[in-house]
Design a protein around this nucleic acid. Structure first.
Lengths: 348, 348
DNA sequence: CATCGATGTGGCAGCGCTGCCAATCCGGAT
DNA sequence: ATCCGGATTGGCAGCGCTGCCACATCGATG
């Protein structure tokens, strides 16, 4: 929808001031004002079909004069597709999901789509509820996080006939479009890296893995990686709260109190690892001499620590953007594995 | 919309499998299936008006059997209000805005509203465009960030007759509902605090203040606060990039190279301050002995640093929630100043 | 000069739902 | 038996727009 020239704007106060109680301007009003048919106005506004240059000018002038704003609700009902994409994420607290949103909204904007978002708090029942709620807006597509959904969610997604993209995980079967990377492989790579550096007494500090399935997959991959290297997890600590800097700091503190002779700590993500780093700084534990630290996600903050954090960079912004583009353009069901990158850093 | 009992679900594969190409189930289908009128189905689904218990059961059974999902697009068009709230934020990179979103979406969910979000990248022209775009969904309300908008945006907001909440700032006139805190006062309080602690050679490290109006207000307030204490800014460094840990770290490095004898640094926010802290750690500058650090926002990460960051905690989640509630319940135009809290920390 | 395709244009029937109103039903009071 | 008022129900006209079709209009063609 083009502006049609601000300078042409000349509506009287009457028309604009507080539309409250006033009948909203409709396309029919514009048609009357421009002395053309409704369909012509519709065609001009959507730049769809043919019309003369003179008509376009007339319509745009009328639009500006009346301050008309098209009603997409009506437009969507009348046409078929909705140019809305629903996005379901588990949390807004972990920067990973805003990153995903950022990639998705940027790509969607380009394609002329709008995003409706919903947050599940890592709760599958809530996911089912919000999926239902989003579907009632008849979106052109849905972006959800992860591959694990309860049967109700799965059923609704299948039955809706709406395109679905599942993000940030490729370890398992998807419903339609899958864009992400292997969390299991990331965990494994982390273990290989630590083992390769000679660490032997390795601990794990994580958060609630029953809800965060991707963290659970990294954990499983990590253990496998250790096994493959002839090692096993020396100790672990799971904090009950969601992942956070605080959880990482306290988790490491607790773990070291119980098992003081660890030589490396693997965290469920960078926030946790940063907390662990702060613990080491606060208690004079040299990193990685006394204790090595390894995270996950490759947040900016890790790169800027006095010693860059050893971690794995995940392309989450790209995942959001890729998924959005695939949904808009509508190709066949696919799995896109964007991979990840191990960052050696200086903490391990 | 209640689930109506998963166990009652017994649709044949025929009905559910890949709705593609299949005519979607409408309310009329449900009415036929339940052998009642359309209005009755509508009443039952919205629990609005009166109907017998027997009818409710029949309708809910039919809904479950057919896997019906109400079409809110149609519902919204037919009724008046839309149960959509548009949220416009400048960025998803800075955790402050996801925090705002979090507060807002949580509150909206309770009230049965859905949020549509749009990101402006701190660009006022883009803000105008996305406001137009959001208005075309005929939202029940709009949440925007800050009080500064270009004339076009202002005009659209006024003319739409839609309730508007402007967030995170109270320093200036608002259009309708205003929920936030004084950035100017926060800057001033920071200056008073540093001056009170005896710091005399105080530098400022900030990002692009032409786009981030609230950071600019803090900066102005800070300078005023210094003046009031008989001091003035010893030096300042503005990085061209958006605020980030990296910008803070490099900003401080640059500033110290130019003006080595600073005794305190005021950052435009906590991310920047964290970067500054990392610089100090990396270069063995004792904090606050050699250099004091002061941030803004009160992020969790600041609290967990080996030395808790001196900063100002802003109630941004609460601001989102408050604004959402005010928009939903629809009271008169108001200004809600949620205030802020100065956290002394240990870095200043 | 009739014919033709390309280009503009307007009319109008829906999209799926809600809101209003009229119709019907029911139990108790007369 | 008759009437009354509330509870329950169905019919149907829109909500504002788009998609389809019919209808000009016009220069070019045979």
């Amino acid at each position: 929808m083009d502006e049609g020239g601000n300078e042409a704007f000349a509506a009287d106060e009457e028309t604009l001031r507080e539309g409250i109680g006033r009948r909203p301007i409709t396309l029919a009003d514009v048609a009357r004002e421009a002395r053309v048919g409704e369909s012509t106005v519709s065609r001009v506004l959507r730049s769809h079909g043919s019309f003369s240059e003179k008509t376009r000018a007339r319509v745009e002038a009328a639009v500006a004069r009346l301050g008309y704003v098209p009603n997409r609700i009506a437009g969507t009902l009348a046409s078929t597709g909705s140019r809305l994409i629903g996005i379901v994420i588990p949390s807004l607290t972990n920067i990973v999901f805003p990153d995903l949103l950022r990639g998705a909204t940027a790509a969607l904007e380009q394609e002329g789509f709008q995003s409706v978002i919903a947050v599940t708090d890592y709760d599958q029942d809530k996911e089912e509820a919000v999926v239902g709620s989003l579907l009632s807006w008849r979106p052109a597509g849905l972006i959800v996080t992860g591959l694990e959904h309860n049967p109700g969610t799965r059923r609704r997604l299948m039955a809706s006939g709406v395109r679905v993209a599942e993000l940030l995980d490729v370890d398992g079967p998807g419903l339609d479009i899958v864009v992400g990377y292997s969390n299991r492989a990331a965990g494994e790579a982390s273990a290989r890296h630590l083992a390769g550096r000679g660490y032997r007494r390795i601990g794990y500090i994580g958060h609630d893995l029953t809800k965060d399935k991707r963290a659970a997959k990294r954990y499983a991959g990590f253990r496998e990686g250790l096994s493959a290297a002839g090692l096993s997890l020396a100790a672990e600590e799971r904090v009950a709260s969601p992942s956070s800097v605080e959880a990482g700091r306290h988790g490491l503190e607790t773990l070291l109190a119980r098992v003081p002779d660890l030589d490396a700590a693997y965290f469920s993500n960078d926030d946790m690892a940063l907390g662990g780093y702060f613990h080491c700084l606060a208690h004079g534990l040299s990193v990685p001499g006394r204790l090595a630290l390894f995270g996950y996600n490759g947040l900016d903050v890790g790169r800027l620590m006095p010693q860059p954090l050893a971690t794995i960079r995940t392309p989450r912004v790209e995942a959001g953007a890729t998924a959005a583009r695939l949904l808009c353009t509508g190709g066949p069901a696919t799995v896109v594995d964007l991979g990840f990158e191990l960052i050696e850093g200086a903490t391990a």
